[in-house]
């Protein structure tokens, strides 16, 4: 420790700073940047899980992807899944945050219990919702039958539309507490004087919301929506547990598709090629994210 202090003295300020970032730099290079670049390169080869070695095959993998009659569906699924989960979970989380922010007795406790949903392992959440949506003994069917809304049981996970809805609802349930926590923190940071002033000017609840709350929370809303979209785009486990991407690829998102191509069809090259397309797509997204962050800071 002594020696470190001495050597520290000899370093210039910026050298020292760089040294501190070095471990992160090394880890980043080794298990993020290199894998990304290598996976990119892999997209242009016939790398397989069954055999070592690989040969350059040009655009063959991309040709295969574009000739697949269902590939468009995978992109559409991904879009639907990401858009619906983010929008649904965000809006529910926002409303829930506002409800809890009203300062009702027990709100603190409710906030705590809500957060528990977020830390239940995704696999367990998948099990739970599979059970709720179960076509034979599921509670959802029983409830709907009880209310007279349906006559016969519905196999929710066995139909394309409802299977997608089911995974969306399950995933949104998992992330709702996360949005709530951020938004609640944001709500509490809204300056109270501004709300008061607006009230004096005769603003309604809606007016307070649009004129005071939203502008004040612009940054945090932007931030969590971006993070939410990124997280949902990556999402794998709940879908995998509930439907494995089925039936008939109705819930196959990009993450599931890449996994299946790589570890069930053993075609790493094709999987990587889909990854290349995916990254190209999100770069557009990343561009706006960074530009916005830079402008804000």
């Amino acid at each position: 420790m002594k020696r470190k202090v001495h050597s520290g003295r000899k370093l210039t300020e910026s050298q020292f700073g760089f040294l501190l970032a070095l471990p992160a730099l090394a880890v980043f290079g080794a298990i993020i940047l290199y894998p990304l670049l290598n996976s990119f390169a892999m997209g242009f080869t016939n790398q397989s899980l069954l055999r070592p070695g690989r040969q350059y095959v040009g655009l063959l993998n991309f040709e295969r992807i574009f000739l697949d009659p269902n590939i468009l569906q995978v992109f559409v699924n991904t879009f639907v899944f990401v858009a619906c989960t983010t929008a649904f979970s965000f809006s529910m989380g926002f409303i829930w945050a506002m409800v809890l922010n009203q300062g009702l007795r027990g709100s603190e406790l409710l906030r705590g219990i809500t957060l528990v949903n977020w830390i239940i392992p995704g696999t367990a959440i998948g099990f739970l919702w599979m059970w709720i949506f179960n076509g034979q003994y599921g509670v959802l069917n029983a409830l709907l039958r009880g209310l007279g809304l349906i006559q016969e049981n519905i196999t929710w996970l066995g139909r394309p539309g409802s299977a997608m809805a089911a995974v969306v609802i399950a995933r949104a349930w998992q992330t709702l507490p996360w949005y709530m926590a951020f938004l609640l923190a944001g709500l509490q940071a809204v300056p109270y004087e501004q709300v008061e002033a607006a009230r004096i000017d005769g603003a309604s609840n809606f007016g307070v919301f649009t004129r005071i709350v939203l502008p004040n929370m612009k940054f945090i809303i932007f931030l969590i929506l971006i993070l939410g979209v990124i997280g949902n785009l990556q999402h794998f486990d709940i879908i995998w547990v509930m439907t494995q991407g089925g039936p008939a690829q109705a819930t196959t998102t990009l993450a599931v598709e890449v996994y299946r191509r790589a570890f069930q069809n053993w075609e790493l090259g094709v999987a990587a090629a889909i990854g290349v397309l995916w990254v190209l797509l999100i770069s557009i997204f990343a561009f706006f994210y960074i530009r916005n962050l830079e402008r804000d800071s």
Binding site: I32, I230, L233, V258, G275, V279, A286
Partner: peptide
Amino acid sequence: MFPLVVLLL
């Protein structure tokens, strides 16, 4: 934003 599953390959 890098897809984890792509890194996994």
